[in-house]
Every structure is written in structure tokens, then in C-alpha cells.
Design a protein around this nucleic acid. Structure first.
Lengths: 413, 413
DNA sequence: AGTATTTTTTCGAGGCTCGAAAAAATAGAG
DNA sequence: CTCTATTTTTTCGAGCCTCGAAAAAATACT
């Protein structure tokens, strides 16, 4: 069961907290850190002296931000970019993108490739991933001192341990243990993350004001995905990445979903579903991939006149609204970020969505539920991966200590 | 943000852990505690010496369990029943029940009363609760040394802070801050808990093998409630007790629910809904309260012949199945305990439920999902309240220390 | 140049856990 | 009945860690 807390855990945790405070923001001084953490100045002083000595933190130039106050000026602490580096690998439909990021969070190199993920063999898919990682690692331009961590993200279902992709819409292959494969190949710890979870992580770093302890990120794309942060922690299923909002049941026995079942939210709100309804095809029609340009054209058409296109978006809104309503019955309402190409058509979706939500348990506060849109998911996913990998380095490498119980510890977003 | 960990927190946490280890089980010896907690024997020795000195723990008689091993026999540690006491108050439809429980978990006194909760005024309801608590506290028979905590449970929605009932089906009144009222009246810390959450807590204590880290308790009664434990923690909404499984939407625009909305799971699976369908009444018919005896008769009728009664249970199973399927899409499948009068009719519900679940995302492992039934919810709820109150005493009174961040700390079930 | 003010470091005190060793308590052997 | 082996529990000193107070450092104001 719960394990005792040792004496040396103490230092480890407080080190991690100091690093965390520095990563969170704006060159905090030792005094500020002491204030936010509640630890004494002496402790912070000792810990930061250690961290600077180890090359993890650096003291900022005291010149900057001309001191207006009277006494000894505060000296800001920052992350030493050279302390480590991490790599992100984002695998999406027909597209593979990697980036190398320094310890301070700056992108120092990147590479992208088009692939035909839907038809590639298992070996080819794995091969492309390892090859692109190898190219980045061997790049002589770039003194990749020590890539300490690789974070992959993929659309679809991953396991709770963040080791493997279990299922993904971008490939017919299943159960690929990408994390293990990359670790074996390069000897660098790796994790396999769900794309929507990474979106949520990124939103939290981007705008901690709005996306603080409880919020929802929904990907409106070929499929419908969700990343959920509850009480400050990334929510995952008990076995898988969980949060398969798109496969909650909207209408029992209803429209055919890409997953093979019927009546899922996605079968009404995924790109293929909107397309199917806009073209007045059968709800049983085989799901097809619609490219982003076509979706944008469809949205334009729907805005122009009240025809089947507009009705298709209305149906999508209704499905999303009832789905969110059911979700809100479980977790209470929270701010929502709509991400992906159909988020750009949120104006078409919102009315029906709000109407549906008002019919549900979440509807009591229907007006107070706020939506935000972000049409481009890729930068978010990469950012989330980067932060995930970096905070891993913060905690497991630069503040190592006792074995965290049952593996990966808390899912701090 | 996250607060630093101080030096004295250490002792506090380890004290709490020793107490927890003792509460969890069978008179553990110091050596066993050291093994499970990972702390050194010296530390455990020091802490337990303190706790015994303070009258919190007691050493068991070494006579018992005739030692078969060779060396110095282990001496089991137990909770000192006189260290404290707690009180549970369970408020359900037309029924109020309190119990006084000693620190070791034994019931030392109880009292029950029938009330007409549906028609009582706000003042009367509060008055009955405070009166029954006062009677127990003033009982001279019982040397109620120090009731250190009161835990109330009620069917319905409570707030996350466990201070108030927000809404309940058993009374037209809303927003009663029972916890504050009792604290003001008696000067004893109190909490207001959701009944299904307490069921979940109790199940975890009763059968930690089956109900360990992830499971679901569903109350099948007048309404449909849920208590959910995920990753070893009680799941609550962000503002309310959350987990309003019964008000997930099963069929948009469907049958009339007691909550005034349409198509909720409860509108198909609550007692009133089963009754309505069995009597072939309209799905818009006003929900009525059906007593347990009538429900049992209905179930008997349904078992006897294939008529509208059996169909009503089928519909209930279908709604529960699709609801669970949607839930499993979010959290992955987990063991389920069905509690309440309709759990006794689970044989009538299960076939349709399993069929529905197989149509959903959770259906992949449909066969591995296991159900357990428990017709009587009241003892479970009381037990959960007792454990909740006792673990509060363990942690906040006998291992006091730093302020837990943002109030109540972790929701350890 | 001197003083006030604020930040950061230094230093000793007090606590806590740990490992090793001692003490305690029992079963088995002769 | 005594001695030895074995296991549990306590004792004791060492090593860390955090804390508060005081000192040192670095600047603005007068």
C-alpha cells in the first residue's frame, strides 16, 4: 500500500519543487520561490546553490529589468538550456514530425515528413520513426549533448503506462510498443502519449489562468478526441489513455462509427460524419477521410445557405452537446477548448451544441460554460510532448530519489 | 501552487501511515508495518511508542495466536477503542439513522426514526437531525468520551467541500449546509457526504481484494446513483459530489426523468421508471415513489412470465448498459457493484445490460466485466460514513500538522 | 559618504530516519 | 533445567534536512 516517506525523499521533493517553480515562470528569484513554496529562504538558498552548481539552473543577468526597488536586487533564476535536451515525435495521419528541444524549452531542431500511414506496414511505420529519430540524434550541426527523454504522441488509444499505442485511426496496425522500441534502439527513456492528452498539457502551460485545475480539450478532426484535466491532474483511464469522449454513445443503435460500433458521438461529429450528412449519404456509409481543405469548403458552404451542410453541423453540435452534457453529469461543467479543423467551424456548431447541453444535467450552468477555439492541433500536441518530457527530466533525472510507487507517479499536467 | 514539504510534515505523514496500517488490518506487528511501509524498524518503533503513549494504539495480548515460530513473538498493534468516537448520520427517503462508533470501528449505540422527508419543512428536517444527534451525545448510558467527528450521508448532490447538500430527491429543500449547521450546534467537525460515495468507500474496506483501485458502485433504487473509485481515490466532481451516472443522457429527448429533464439513464432504470414501463404508462408520466415491497413483487412477476414487467427490466438493463458503456469509454471497464433493491432483480437486468454494453466501446472486454450485487444499501452507507469519519480522525486529529492544501486533501476512499 | 532597505548566505539548533548493535522473548536441543 | 538459535523490538550515535536569526551583500535615497 502507501509507502512511507523517507528522510532523503524530502530533499528530492523540494528540489523538484524549486525546479518546477523555475520552469513555471518568469525567472523567479529565490525570495519569490520561497514565498510560493512556503519553504524558508535558507532552504531555497541551499537548494538553488546545489542546482546552479550542478548546471541545472543559471542565474539571470541582474542588469535586466532595471531595478526600481530599493534594496539588493533580486536575481532571477532560469533553466540552463544546456542542462539537457528532449525530443518530441508526433505521429498523425500521413504525417510525422520530430523536434529537439533544449532544457529551457526552445526548439533547436526539427524535421517533418509526409507518410502514407494508412497503408504502411508495421515494420515500415516503426522504421520511419526510428529513422527520423536517428537522423536527429546523429545530426552533427547540433551538439545534441544529451537527449534525456523522448515523448511520442499519436492519435488513438495508448496504455496507461505510456509504453504502447494500442489502437489508432491513422494505421491499421495495433499494439505497437513504441516506447519500448525507441528505448531499446537508442537507450533513451521514452513514452507514448495520447495526442489529446498532450493538447491538454500544452493548454495548461500556455494559459494557466484559464486552464488551471479543471478543463477539457476536445479535438474535432477526423475523429473526436478528448484530453481532460481534473483537479490539476491529467485524467487517464485505468488501463488505457481513456477519455474516449468520441465513443460515448449518443444514440443507441445510431449512425455507423469508424470504430465499427453505432451511435458514438464521433459518428455524428467527426469530419467523416459531417461530410456524410452534408452529402446526404446514409448514416451507414463507410467512413472516409476528408482533407482539411474540403472541410473548410464545407463550412463555407454551410455559412452561405441553409442546406444539408448547415444541418450536418447542427447534428454535430447536437451530438457534442449531449455528449458534453453526459460528461458534465459526471465531472461538473468546466471550460472547454475546441481544437482542430472543425473548431474553425465552431460558429456553425455552437448553437445546436448549447441547445443540447441545456437539455442535460450540465445545462443548469449552460451559460457559464465557455468555449475557446484553436484550429491548429499540431503545435499544441508538440508543445505538450515537450513539456511532458521536460517535466520528466525535471523530476526523474534532476531530482531523482526513491522509486515512485507503481511507476510513473502523478499525472501532473 | 504546490507547496513545499517541511521537515515536520515527515513525522506527521509517517504517523498517519502507521495508524493507517493498523486500521487496515489484522493487528499488525511493528515488523509487519515496517515491511509494508518501507520504513526502518527503528522509525516504526519510535512512532508506535509515541502512539501507544498517547493512547491511540494498544498492544494486543501476546497470548493470542499461539506463536509457532521460534524467536521473540510479534506483538500485534490495535486501535484503542477509547481513543475517540465518531458519529454517522444517514438521511434517506423517510428514514433517519444515526450510530456512534468507537475508534476501533465498533458500533456502540444507534437510533433510527421514520420521517416524512418529502413533505417536511426545511426547519423540521434540520431540527430532526440536530435533535437525534443531541440525544445520542447526551445519552448517559454511553460514556461518549469524545465524539471527534460526524459524517452525514444523503442521497443526492453534495458539494465538493463536503459541507452542504445541494439537491436531494428525498426532500424539496435545496442547499442545506448540514455540515456547518452541526458544527455550529455541537462544535464537532462534520462533513456532508454523498450516499453512493460512502457505499464505494465501504466496499473498499469490506473487500479490498475485489474493490481495490478501480471500481464502480451503482445504487439501483428510486434514483440511480454512483460512487466511483479511480486509482485508489474517490472520484468527485469539480464542484459537486459528481458522478451523476443516473443523469447521463441515454436517449436525447426521451423519457421524463425525476430531475425534470428527458432521456436520462434514470428515466429508464430508476424504480419509478421500471414501474412506469411495467404498468405500460406513458414515458411522460410523473415519477412516483414505489416502495421496496412493490418492487420485489414486480420483479417476481417479471420472473414468472414474459410480459410488460419483464420488458421494463429489459429497458432498464439497456439504459444501464449503454450508460456503463459510455462511462467505460471514459474510464475503461472496472468491476461493478450493484446495490439497492433493484440489485435483487439483477438477474432480470443483466442480459439486456450485457447486450447493450457489447454495443459500446467498453464492450471489447464485455465478458470480463464482473458484477456483484448487494440488495441492502443502508448498512453500506453507514459503514462508509464510519470509515470516512474514522480516517479523518486518524489523519487530522492524531497526525495533525501542516495545513493540507486547499482543504480536505486527498479523497482516499 | 552614510543610511535605509531588500535579498541572499551563513551558522548553529533541533528533528527525523537510518543502520548497527544491544536487549528481550521465545522454541528447540541436549 | 540450561544453553543456544532465532526472531522481534529497543537503543544509540551518525548523517541529513529545514528553520530561524544574524550576518553579508547589493542597491536607492539623502
Amino acid at each position: 500500500m502507501s509507502v512511507g516517506i523517507r528522510h532523503d525523499d524530502l530533499r528530492r521533493r523540494n528540489r523538484a519543487m524549486v525546479i518546477g517553480a523555475v520552469r513555471r515562470g518568469g525567472q523567479p528569484s529565490r525570495t519569490e520561490i520561497a514565498a510560493t513554496t512556503g519553504l524558508s529562504h535558507s532552504t531555497i538558498s541551499a537548494i538553488s546553490a546545489d542546482l546552479i552548481g550542478e548546471g541545472i539552473l543559471t542565474e539571470g543577468k541582474p542588469s535586466e529589468a532595471g531595478s526600481l526597488k530599493r534594496g539588493r536586487p533580486q536575481v532571477g533564476l532560469g533553466l540552463n538550456p544546456e542542462a539537457a535536451a528532449v525530443m518530441t515525435v508526433v505521429l498523425s495521419l500521413n504525417f510525422l514530425s520530430v523536434a529537439v528541444i533544449d532544457y529551457a524549452g526552445q526548439v533547436v531542431a526539427e524535421e517533418q515528413r509526409r507518410l502514407d500511414t494508412l497503408t504502411m506496414s508495421r515494420e515500415a511505420l516503426i522504421g520511419e520513426c526510428t529513422a527520423i529519430v536517428r537522423r536527429r540524434l546523429e545530426d552533427p550541426d547540433l551538439d545534441v549533448r544529451s537527449v534525456a527523454r523522448i515523448a511520442l504522441a499519436i492519435q488513438g488509444i495508448t496504455d496507461t503506462e505510456a509504453r504502447a499505442m494500442l489502437w489508432s485511426p491513422i494505421t491499421p496496425q495495433t499494439d505497437i510498443a513504441f516506447a519500448d522500441i525507441l528505448e531499446a534502439e537508442f537507450g533513451i527513456p521514452a513514452t507514448m502519449e495520447n495526442d489529446c492528452n498532450m493538447m491538454a498539457v500544452a493548454l495548461r502551460w500556455r494559459d494557466p489562468e484559464r486552464y488551471r485545475d479543471d478543463f477539457i480539450a476536445i479535438l474535432l478532426s477526423h475523429g473526436i478526441g478528448m484530453g481532460l484535466v481534473l483537479k490539476g491532474e491529467l485524467f487517464t483511464g485505468t488501463h488505457s489513455s481513456g477519455g474516449e469522449f468520441g465513443h460515448m454513445i449518443h444514440r443507441p443503435g445510431g449512425a455507423l462509427c469508424r470504430c465499427g460500433r453505432r451511435g458514438c458521438v464521433e459518428a455524428y461529429a467527426g469530419n467523416y460524419a459531417i461530410w456524410r450528412n452534408a452529402r446526404m449519404m446514409s448514416e451507414d456509409a463507410e467512413p472516409i477521410d476528408v482533407n482539411d481543405a474540403d472541410m473548410r469548403a464545407l463550412a463555407a458552404l454551410a455559412r452561405e445557405s441553409d442546406g444539408p451542410e448547415r444541418e450536418a453541423y447542427r447534428k454535430a453540435g447536437e451530438a457534442l452537446g449531449y455528449g458534453l452534457g453526459s460528461l458534465f453529469a459526471l465531472i461538473d461543467p468546466a471550460p472547454v477548448a475546441m481544437v482542430g479543423v472543425s473548431a474553425a467551424a465552431f460558429d456553425l456548431i455552437e448553437p445546436a451544441l448549447r441547445e443540447a447541453i441545456a437539455q442535460t444535467a450540465g445545462g443548469q450552468h449552460s451559460k457559464s460554460i465557455s468555449f475557446d477555439t484553436e484550429p491548429n492541433e499540431l503545435p499544441l500536441i508538440r508543445e505538450g510532448c515537450a513539456m511532458r518530457a521536460l517535466t520528466f527530466v525535471d523530476q526523474e533525472i534532476f531530482a531523482p530519489g526513491v522509486q515512485t510507487r507503481s511507476g510513473t507517479g502523478k499525472n501532473v499536467a
